[in-house]
Design a protein around this nucleic acid. Structure first.
Length: 475
DNA sequence: CTGGGGATGGGGCCC
DNA sequence: GGGGCCCCATCCCCA
């Protein structure tokens, strides 16, 4: 084909075999050609999908199998992009993804959109489609849903409750993540999908169940990389790999984050109190990177985080915030931010005594009081109740605990460094702080001292400073 | 091997 | 929105 004119973006081509002398001349606009080509191509792909030709990706939604093309899913969804870019690509017969967080009908709507540009939204399915789109990281679909809801709420736009079908041609351009720049596609008859009932509450309950449960393949794109549902053994392995040892520079790197069950902290009980000084820089670097990545992650969160939950008793919608990485929803944005730390691996609260890091200040406080302050008025040996006066505080490395007089006499006292009773009642300096944060007044008692060596936690070398701060200052 | 308890993490919710 | 408390689940250690 010969280009005969360049009109900026619109180039004109002469059909092959036609000379400039032939009449009438047939001119092709490059933009038209592109659109026609894309349209034809997509139509072909859609046909192939419906005929299950060359489908190399299996998606299981509530037991219903969908077959599609990896490259199409990859190009359309951030979720699949992450999933397919890291998953094995030689398992044509295996299930690539399993979803229980939305219905097959919803996935059909989304799949039809991917392959046709037609988003079959209705007042009945918009919430679940939006929720699914959020889960699949398809910002364009989310935007359509938002527009749909917005226009539905606008009483000036009289559309009653009639279902509407948004097509690419009628809505905004896409500037979101890669793969969602599907550009203008051909108009195609809306796929006839029977809309499921509004299922937000169902989704919400799933959120809880899946979150509390073990179906890791639903938790996050990263965890979804597992082809098969994780077995307890897998979890164990995951645990093993996901050490929370602060000495491990990767222990909470966002990229290595893997969802685990509640409270699954792998403890290298004594390891955490060992310091490899030459690695400190690496640790700090990793920590910084992690914080930066977390910030970056927060900054690049999909715009659609707030979703409309079920109606309250006044029939007003209850806004909930959905985690972009899993199906969990929360009422408050602050709770979502807190929740996101379990995905980002961010642990902004380090214990200066043992270097262990925590996601929350309260966890750090609890840890410090329990481990380093001997706050429990219980004899560690005989479990009897002691008081601050009768409970001798025994130091063992960075650990402090109380023992009753009898137990102290029973064991070889000479081997156990022991605080005086007076000292036991005094407050060791809480060498705690929040990385990168100025200590506020409320945290003054959690002083950061200049003695960074305290963080080295070299066992018996720990220096317990005794200051006059009262316990109450902690509260 | 097993059960109990400690330590930790995460969600809900109040202040 | 942050801090904090309560509750519960999970994991690990140890007797």
């Amino acid at each position: 084909m010969e280009m005969v004119a360049d009109l900026g973006a619109s180039r004109l081509y002469r059909a092959p075999g036609e000379s400039s002398h032939q009449q009438p001349q047939r001119w092709f606009n490059a933009a038209d050609i592109t659109v026609a080509h894309q349209s034809s191509l997509l139509k072909q792909l859609n046909q192939q999908r419906r005929q299950e030709l060359f489908c190399d990706c299996n998606v299981l939604v509530e037991g219903q199998l969908f077959r599609a093309h990896r490259n199409i899913l990859f190009a359309s969804s951030g979720y699949f992009r992450m999933l397919l870019s890291q998953g094995p690509d030689d398992l044509a017969d295996s299930i690539d993804a399993t979803f229980d967080v939305f219905s097959p009908e919803t996935f059909t709507v989304i799949l039809d959109f991917i392959y046709s540009g037609q988003l079959d939204l209705s007042s009945h399915n918009v919430i679940e489609v939006m929720s699914a789109a959020s889960y699949l990281q398809m910002n364009n679909v989310i935007n359509y849903c938002k527009n749909f809801i917005k226009s539905s709420l606008d009483i000036s736009v009289k559309d009653e409750d009639s279902d509407r079908c948004l097509s690419l041609s009628e809505t905004c351009s896409f500037t979101s993540g890669a793969g969602e720049e599907t550009s203008e596609q051909q108009q195609q008859g809306p796929s006839s999908v029977s809309p499921p009932p509004a299922l937000w509450t169902r989704d919400n309950s799933r959120s809880q169940s899946s979150f509390m449960g073990k179906d890791l393949d639903l938790e996050s794109p990263a965890s979804a990389l597992k082809t098969n549902p994780s077995s307890p053994a897998d979890d164990l392995n995951a645990e093993t790999e996901d050490m929370q040892d602060p000495q491990d520079p990767l222990y909470t790197l966002p990229g290595s984050e893997r969802r685990r069950g509640k409270g699954g902290t792998k403890r290298r009980a004594s390891n955490s109190s060992r310091s490899n000084q030459p690695e400190d820089l690496d640790i700090e670097e990793a920590r910084t990177q992690k914080a930066e990545k977390a910030e970056e992650l927060y900054a690049t969160l999909p715009p659609m985080l707030g979703v409309i939950g079920h109606l309250n008793k006044d029939s007003n919608p209850i806004m909930r915030f959905k985690c972009p990485f899993c199906t969990h929803t929360v009422k408050r944005k602050a709770d979502l931010k807190r929740h996101l730390r379990c995905h980002t691996g961010e642990r902004p609260y380090p214990c200066q005594a043992c270097n262990k890091r925590f996601t929350r200040l309260e966890h750090l406080r609890s840890h410090f009081e329990t481990i380093h302050q001997a706050r429990k008025l219980v004899c560690r040996k005989c479990k009897c109740q002691v008081t601050e006066d009768t409970g001798h505080v025994v130091c063992e490395g960075t650990r402090r605990y109380r023992m009753c007089t009898a137990c102290v006499q029973e064991v070889d006292c000479d081997d156990i460094p022991m605080d005086s009773l007076d000292g036991a009642n005094e407050e060791p300096a809480l060498l705690l702080g929040v990385d990168g944060e100025e200590e506020g007044d409320s945290k003054r008692s959690w002083m950061v001292t200049d003695d960074d060596d305290l963080a080295e936690d070299s066992g018996a070398d720990l220096i317990i400073q005794q200051v006059d701060d009262s316990d109450e200052e902690l509260q």
